[in-house]
C-alpha cells in the first residue's frame, strides 16, 4: 500500500473550496431562476436547461477524470490516482442521475413524455449503467491492488461511451435539442451567460465533492491497512 496514506484526525469541514462552491451555486441559482428572462417559446421551462446541461457537463468531466486516473494508476500503481478515479466516478453517477431526471422533467411538458428511447437519452442511460457497474465491481473485490486495476480498466473502456453520448444527436435522428454546433451557440447571449455561470459553479462544486469523497477513500484505505496490521 502507498506510503502517502495520511488521514487528518480533524472532523470533516467545509473548507474554503466548500464555501466558494456554495457561493458559486447561489449565484448560479439566482442567474438561472431570477436574472435571466423566460424563453420566448418555452417560457419558464427553459430554466431547467441551465442546470440540466451543467449536470451533463460535470458527468462528462467526472468520467474523463476517472479515465485519466485509471491510466495514470496503471502506469504508476499509486493509489492516490485510484482514489481520484473512484471519487470522480461516483460523483459522475450522481450528476448523470441528475441530468437524466431533470431532462425527464423538462421532456414531459415539452415532448409530452417522461421518457423516449431517443439516441441521446439511451446512450446516457447506458453511460449511467457502465459507471454503476464500475462502483458495484469495486465493492465486490477485496484485494486493493486487484480492485484498483480492474476498476481502472473499466473506467478506461467505459469512457468510450462519453463521445458517443455527445455525438449521438449529430450521428442519429433525434428530437433532443442541439445547443452547441462548431462555432455557433443556438441560444441568446443572455442565456449563454447564464449557462456559463452555471457551468462554472457546477465545475467548482464538482471539485469540492471529489475532494471530500477522496478523503473518504483515503480514510477507508487507512482503516483497512491498520486492521490488517493488527491481525498480523
Amino acid at each position: 500500500m502507498n506510503a502517502s496514506l495520511t488521514v487528518s484526525r480533524k472532523r470533516p469541514s467545509m473548507g474554503i473550496l466548500g464555501w466558494v462552491a456554495s457561493l458559486a451555486m447561489l449565484v448560479a441559482i439566482y442567474t438561472a431562476l431570477v436574472w435571466v428572462p423566460p424563453d420566448a417559446d418555452m417560457g419558464d421551462f427553459q430554466r431547467i436547461f441551465y442546470f440540466h446541461v451543467s449536470s451533463a457537463w460535470v458527468a462528462f468531466l467526472s468520467f474523463f477524470v476517472t479515465f485519466l486516473g485509471g491510466i495514470i494508476y496503471l502506469r504508476t500503481r499509486d493509489f492516490r490516482w485510484d482514489f481520484l478515479a473512484v471519487s470522480s466516478a461516483e460523483v459522475g453517477v450522481v450528476f448523470t442521475s441528475i441530468a437524466l431526471i431533470t431532462g425527464s422533467i423538462w421532456a414531459r411538458p415539452i415532448w409530452g413524455a417522461w421518457w423516449t428511447w431517443d439516441p441521446r437519452l439511451t446512450t446516457t442511460l447506458i453511460l449511467w449503467f457502465i459507471y454503476v457497474a464500475y462502483l458495484i465491481l469495486r465493492k465486490n473485490v477485496d484485494d486493493p491492488s486487484r480492485r484498483a486495476s480492474l476498476a481502472a480498466v473499466i473506467g478506461i473502456v467505459g469512457f468510450v461511451d462519453v463521445p458517443i453520448v455527445f455525438m449521438s444527436i449529430r450521428w442519429w435522428r433525434t428530437i433532443h435539442p442541439i445547443v452547441f454546433e462548431p462555432g455557433e451557440f443556438r441560444v441568446a447571449p443572455i442565456m449563454m451567460v447564464t449557462l456559463l455561470v452555471s457551468l462554472v459553479a457546477f465545475t467548482i462544486f464538482y471539485a469540492y465533492l471529489v475532494t471530500v469523497r477522496a478523503s473518504l477513500e483515503r480514510a477507508q484505505m487507512e482503516v483497512e491497512a491498520l486492521e490488517q496490521e493488527s491481525w498480523d
Partner: peptide, 11 residues
C-alpha cells in the same frame, strides 16, 4: 411551468 421548474431544482 413553475411547478416543473420547482420539481427539477428540488430534485
Amino acid at each position: 411551468s413553475l411547478l416543473f421548474v420547482a420539481a427539477a431544482y428540488g430534485v
